[in-house]
Amino acid sequence: MSRDAAILWLKPFIARPIALAGLGILLTTVLAALLAPWLSPYDPNAIDPVIRLTPPNAIHWFGTDQFGRDTLSRVIHSARMALLIGSGVVLFALATGVPVGILSALFPRLGHVLMRMIDVLMAFPTLLLALGLIVILGPSLTNAILAIGLGYMTTTTRIVYGLTLRLRAETYVEASRSMGAGTIWLIGRHILPNLISPLLVQASFVFAFAQLGAASLDFLGLGAPPEIPSWGNMLAESRTFVTRAPWLLFFPGMMIVATAFSLNLVGDALRDRLDPRFRQVFGEKG
């Protein structure tokens, strides 16, 4: 990407400080996940009953939990689980939603069947659908990703379906067909390239909602295994000590809100960048 292009992408962020803040929080979370072993001051699983439930202080900035584990270290390590679940859900939603949406739009008979199945899935609230699936499949990390992913696959499919229906009728697609283009050519050269921008936006929102979904499953004990630190697990474990040790609730809870919120802000900024109707606002031509 050239320097000019980089500036174009950054503009909607620079124009709105709050979007820039979102980007900052997001990058911090990613860094925390990548550098967790070096960033965290203690082993997140080191138990020390002597210092259990100490409030935040100079040695343990975020305090310690009921086993004397360092909350800051656990919060940092939890970022890994958050990003893993988030990317897993996004990948699953895209890998299933994009082909189903495109094929449904290009082959109306198939589309009628597939889109009715999507309607059925959409009738369930996302979390209820995820809970039902976990009950059937059994709790595990993969199943948590599948269960949450299925809920967001439906919205992704709908978006892809609608956009492809519109693209299919574009004159340049007709031009391509009149020159003998087959389905694979149309998808590869005309449809997918025009889907990338809206899908980027959709991915950021799915990522954000996946954070909330994962935290809910963890809280119910149906997500990440309890020995792995995750913000949802930390919330679940701390709920019996909430009056004695509110910091155990505050820090992981704040991280869930912050990542989900920052992803939404970034998604908004991306949408503004990619939607030509908003471009004028940022002083771009064309």
């Binding site: 574009e170 004159t171 340049y172 007709e174 031009a175 050269r189 005309h190 390239p193 025009n194």
Partner: peptide, 13 residues
């Protein structure tokens, strides 16, 4: 050759 030159070229190509 199509009527609308704005719609007949793929903006991404």
């Amino acid at each position: 050759v199509f009527q609308d030159p704005y719609a007949s070229l793929n903006p991404r190509r």
